[in-house]
Design a protein around this nucleic acid. Structure first.
Lengths: 195, 195
DNA sequence: GTCTATATCCTGATAGAC
DNA sequence: GTCTATCAGGATATAGAC
């Protein structure tokens, strides 16, 4: 597990993490003080340290737990064997999962540089494990000649960037519904690698 | 002009801005102190304030000047009238310009949230002006039936995300040369909107 | 234009009462 | 588990000598 200290299940611990995710997403890790987090949690600052060893552990736990949950959710999807069907399932899963938790997604790639080198390496490994699943789909699609691209690694990174970019503008009450966005982005992803 | 105080042309002013871009890109605006910037500039902290009104103005000037320069460089490209040729020119320009100044590009979209609301609005307007150029190409391509997509705005955002994502992994001494990356990404961009 | 010194405030983290 | 009080240090920004 990612946790180094403190409890996840306690009510205060839960509120602490919710407050930290929201504040880090809005202002950035370095710009948010433990006092601000305490206020948003509804306790005094000293009480926070019953639930996290320090500020760095708090950030690491948020990121690492997010990546754990993302990987677990993807595995629970049970992607089809057919490469094109798997790519569609991955695309829709990625969009749906990320749209549902914009704050956690945002800090998971904006606050990487505020992790200590050790913690960064661990979160990076989790991120690579996730991307490896997409790259595997692409390689299988290329081998089966139902997909075509110049470079599997770059196609993988391009699709991740394309899909994750949605989080910067998507709003649940915006012009387009979640399902419409999914359809449009699946259309673009399919074209990107079409044979 | 973006500048609110201080000089651009002085030697110290120039070093200050170079140091600030590098440090903000590596550690983030909020995590970098004026003392660190002074040390990297080669002066004492008090001297910085002869070249910038305060830390916020420094950030704003860096971002705003970057966007100004990006827009000016794009206009200097004199994109072709033909929509597909224009899209290729835009794609290669974007990749080339961004690969050449990774630090400035990085902070230009990572540090937006550390701008005051007024400053944020101004930089956002500059960014929209840049994206509007791409959207115009796409609309002309659609009208001429040499491009096809479900939604011009989303296709625009998707292409920007796709291309800008390159900055997160591209290294001049990496596996691929700049020209190879350009070719591969132009290939993917073309497919994305192909009729 | 740069320096040193300083004002004022805020930071993460801890100690010990309850 | 939460509180109050506090420590030691670092933050931005300014003043005034040179």
């Amino acid at each position: 597990m990612a946790r180094t200290a403190g409890s996840t299940s306690s009510e205060t611990g839960h509120r602490l993490r919710q407050a930290a995710v929201a504040l880090f997403a809005r202002h950035g890790y370095a710009a948010v003080s433990m006092r601000q987090i305490a206020a948003a949690t509804g306790v005094q600052v000293g009480a926070l340290y019953n639930h996290t060893a320090d500020k760095q552990s708090l950030l690491f736990d948020l990121l690492s737990d997010h990546m754990d949950a993302l990987l677990a959710a993807l595995e629970a999807e049970a992607l089809p064997d057919d490469p094109l069907a798997a790519l569609e399932a991955f695309t829709r899963f990625h969009l749906r999962y990320h749209a549902a938790r914009p704050d956690a997604v945002f800090i998971a790639y904006m606050e990487l540089r505020n992790l200590t080198p050790d913690n960064f390496a661990r979160v990076e490994a989790q991120r690579r494990a996730y991307e490896a699943q997409l790259e595997d789909i692409l390689r299988r699609g290329s081998k089966a000649e139902v997909m075509r691209f110049d470079d599997a690694k770059l196609a993988c990174l391009a699709i991740i960037a394309l899909l994750t970019g949605v989080t910067t503008w998507f709003r649940a009450d915006g012009r387009l519904r979640q399902s419409e966005v999914e359809d449009i982005y699946w259309s673009m992803t399919r074209r990107l690698v079409s044979a």
